[in-house]
Design a binder for these strands. Structure first.
Length: 461
RNA sequence: GCCCCCAUCGUCUAGUGGCCUAGGACACCACCCUUUCAAGGUGGCGGCACGGGUUCGAAUCCCGUUGGGGGUGCCA
């Protein structure tokens, strides 16, 4: 078991946060490039323990991102709760070495003292009281004097004055260990050498580092990456923002696009290239190159990346992917005919169904489109003429369809762009959509003619 | 309140004292192409938060101000 060990420690909440996804990717890239391990540890809470599907969700989300649990780089998942005994044991060792002590002050009393303005709250009240362990009593860490320097690969050296750090709780009144303790003990037990996580943890890092040292070990290398924020520049929250990775997956964003986009938030390889395959990202990624300020998660740019990745797919890949996003009842051959024309038009695959549904079921006529296309002077006669020409067309192909309409529109002195409008609306129900003649070809002669007929009937009464 | 972090176009970023009249991408606008809509091509709009230093020279270094963010729990 050699080589650096990076840990990723999400807490299951029923969805996988995009910010967490980026942190996971950072750790994964590092572990892969350095020939180390990506250690997944689930911070399972009481609630999560009763919902194994939450943990499964994390695994499947990671899998989607390309962080495969079957890859040799991947280790885990471990459950934090499995180590509960070790957490407490570490706490006890701190008591016997005098680095932790029992405290009887209740949260209410602390709040009272805080408002009384005489102290900051707890203020080390039972530091030297020599209290014994007892019901409801908490174990506190005896913060030493001096200062704590956190050496951070992203931010450099950050110094904290220990006097501003309260004697924090290690074990709750109910006997359970607290996050900071559990984390340190787990990291140590698992031989973690690098802790790369979001910046929101930076202020708590001196506490964890003191714990490492109090336990007699050398702390890991830290790396605090900036958080992801929304338009209001607030940390992304589930309440107000679309943060669930699963939701993007369901909307038809490609994993490769999501991964690539996430990696550009707060990091760049130092050149002008943004779109690049994971293999390159992996070999280029450096913690030292990570930005220091929060980044806005811009769905529009994600969409642009997704479009790029869609266009990069081979026609076969694209068609195969399309089939996954469309009802089973839809004719696959017909879908394959139109697919090439859809590829440059899609932003996400969830857009697919709505843009070609007219090929697979009855037209739903958009009233505004009808009004716009059918009120022109030439619409009725052109439609009739085109219908006649189409009925006798020897070959039902896009090219023939186009030529036929072009010759019918001549007397009206129109451009193709205008002339195709009535036919388009008659057949697709909308003014915008995939290329018309290719759509007609896919639809077939009978259905196309029927739709034009029904439009003519509606137009002429 | 106290502590910590941060600050280049609207957004994501390049930039580590002279190559910067600050580069790219997304978005936006215009034009071209065109079978609507896209895609593609060309061009445009737009930024170093502010004030002091240091220096021959500052987006880059230092100090301050302002502004943002995070932390400060018997949350994780």
């Amino acid at each position: 078991m050699s080589g650096p060990r990076f840990r990723f420690a999400p807490s299951p909440t029923g969805f996988f946060h995009v910010g967490g996804a980026r942190t996971a990717l950072f750790n994964w890239a590092l572990a892969r490039r350095l020939g180390g391990r990506f250690v997944l540890r689930i911070e399972d809470t009481d609630e999560a323990r009763n919902r194994p599907e939450w943990t499964e969700g994390i695994i499947s989300a990671l899998e989607w991102l390309g962080i495969s649990s079957t890859d040799p780089t991947f280790e885990g998942p471990y459950l934090q709760s499995d180590n509960a005994a070790a957490h407490l044991e570490a706490a006890r060792s701190l008591v016997s070495s005098g680095q932790a002590y029992w405290c009887a002050m209740t949260p209410e009393e602390i709040a009272e003292r805080a408002t009384a303005e005489e102290t900051t709250g707890y203020g080390g009240w039972s530091r030297d009281l020599g209290l014994e362990e007892g019901p409801g009593r908490v174990l506190r860490f005896r913060v030493p004097e001096g200062e704590t320097m956190v050496i951070d690969s992203v931010r450099g050296e950050v110094v904290f004055d220990n006097s501003v750090i309260e004697d924090f709780v290690l074990v709750r009144g109910n006997g359970t260990p607290v996050f900071n303790l559990a984390n340190v003990v787990d990291d140590r037990l698992m031989g973690i050498t690098h802790v790369v996580r979001a910046e929101e943890h930076l202020s708590n890092t001196p506490k964890q580092q003191m714990l490492w040292e109090a336990l007699g070990h050398v702390p890991p290398a830290w790396g605090h990456v900036p958080v992801l924020v929304n338009e209001q520049r607030k940390k992304l929250s589930k309440r107000r923002d679309k943060v669930a990775l699963e939701q993007y997956r369901e909307e038809g964003y490609l994993a490769e696009a999501m991964v690539n986009y996430l990696m550009t938030l707060g990091w760049s390889a130092g050149d002008d290239i943004e779109i690049r395959p994971w293999s390159e990202i992996e070999s280029l990624f450096r913690l030292e190159g990570v930005n220091l300020s929060p980044a806005f998660f811009d769905v529009r740019k994600l969409g642009a990346f997704n479009g790029e990745y869609i266009r990069m797919m081979s026609p076969e890949e694209f068609t195969a992917e399309c089939e996954r996003w469309v009802p089973d009842s839809w004719d696959r051959d017909r879908l394959a005919i139109i697919a090439p024309h859809l590829q440059p038009r899609l932003v996400t695959f969830s857009d697919l169904e709505g843009t070609v549904d007219f090929l697979f079921g009855p037209v739903s006529m958009d009233q505004a489109s009808w009004d716009k296309a059918m009120t022109s002077e030439f619409a009725p006669s052109l439609l009739v003429a085109t219908r006649t020409a189409y009925a006798d067309l020897p070959e039902w192909s896009a090219e023939a369809l186009k030529q036929a309409l072009e010759s019918e529109m001549e007397p009206f002195e129109l451009k193709l762009g205008k002339a195709q409008a009535p036919v388009r609306v008659a057949v697709t129900g909308r003014t915008v959509g995939p290329p018309l003649f290719e759509s007609l070809e896919a639809l077939g002669r009978d259905e196309s003619l029927a739709r034009i007929d029904s439009a003519i009937t509606r137009l002429l009464g």
